[in-house]
């Protein structure tokens, strides 16, 4: 094989960046769903991704179920964990403040991580990819088929969520809660129930992220924290609470990391992404697509 041309190198960086970025975007979307209803950041969001991957390993590899069954099974198991998280950790808080909810999710994330270590041990696990491991060559760059799946699932998640929020009563109720919880409860929306739904929904999206990324990156019990941090950054870049912003932010962070690692320095690649985050926040404090109004939040 000869020297790789700069053009195909660039293409390769972009493909890699978009793939990783899609996962960050999924985590960020999960953050947003819960944030919009509760105004708290759910630190256990990364654990949903981890659980998605490991539960899928259980159904797909240990029980050898076909993808068609194991996929919905995994998503429902992780959704159940999301519901439990709300029931056990969030709802019982007396006089919840944003900060106490955040700390509660941190406590829960410790518990989930510890439990995952107990169940699966400390070793990484692999999932067979959805459609083979033979890379597709495109203009000198190699594309893993799984990358296309990752992108496809992100698109699917975005479409389904858009329909959900625009066309269904429940989706509209969730949006109402995001705008004004007390007014929503006055018009008969059960805000506590909506919080529950938001946890279930973002757990499901986290699980999908874990399911599609595990064939690429493997999965082990303590991967969640790193993904949460990346998703958190993606969220802030795009504007907290803003769904197109989450997708944009995630892909942007992925691209900066990959291009930074390839073209400048791999040791400092995370620094580039984070500097971009700081720069965006300092120039436009509400994120790229966020409105100033959303950034007003309750007292801690």
């Amino acid at each position: 094989m000869e020297h790789m041309t700069l053009a195909s190198q660039l293409l390769q960086y972009i493909i890699t960046g978009v793939t990783i970025g899609s996962i960050y975007a999924m985590v960020a979307i999960g953050f947003n769903i819960i944030y919009n209803v509760t105004e708290a950041i759910n630190f256990a969001q990364g654990e949903f991704v981890m659980l998605g991957g490991l539960v899928m390993v259980f159904f797909r590899v240990t029980l050898k179920l076909p993808v068609l069954f194991s996929l919905p099974l995994t998503i429902s198991v992780v959704m159940a964990v999301g519901i439990l998280l709300d029931r056990i950790a969030i709802r019982p808080i007396r006089k919840p403040t944003v900060l106490s909810m955040v700390i509660a999710t941190i406590g829960a994330s410790f518990f989930i991580r510890g439990a995952a270590m107990f169940i699966w041990g400390k070793n990484p696990f692999d999932l067979p990819p959805f459609s083979g491991r033979n890379p597709i060559t495109f203009l000198g760059a190699a594309i893993q088929p799984q990358s296309l799946w990752v992108l496809g699932f992100l698109v699917a998640v975005v479409i389904v969520l858009t329909i959900f929020f625009d066309r269904t009563i429940m989706g509209k109720a969730l949006r109402a809660c995001a705008v004004n919880p007390s007014a929503s409860s006055l018009v008969g929306i059960n805000v506590k129930y909506m919080i529950l739904i938001s946890f279930a929904l973002s757990a499901a999206i986290g699980a999908i992220g874990g399911i599609v990324i595990t064939p690429i990156s493997l999965m082990e019990y303590d991967r969640g924290a790193m993904l949460a941090v990346k998703g958190f950054s993606a969220c802030a870049v795009g504007g907290i609470g803003n769904f197109p912003g989450a997708v944009l932010g995630g892909i942007l962070i992925g691209l900066i990391e990959s291009l930074g690692a390839g073209l400048i320095s791999s040791g400092y690649k995370d620094v580039f992404a984070l500097l971009a985050l700081l720069l965006i926040l300092f120039v436009k404090p509400s994120g790229l697509l966020g409105s100033a109004e959303v950034s007003k939040i309750r007292k801690f």
């Binding site: 944030y35 958190f232 995370d270 926040l281 404090p285 509400s286 950034s295 939040i297």
Partner: peptide, 21 residues
Amino acid sequence: KLKGHYLAMATMAFCIIITII
């Protein structure tokens, strides 16, 4: 100048950058 979570995120970015340095 940032409020709420944005301040948390900016300081988080700062923290990770310093660790990398």
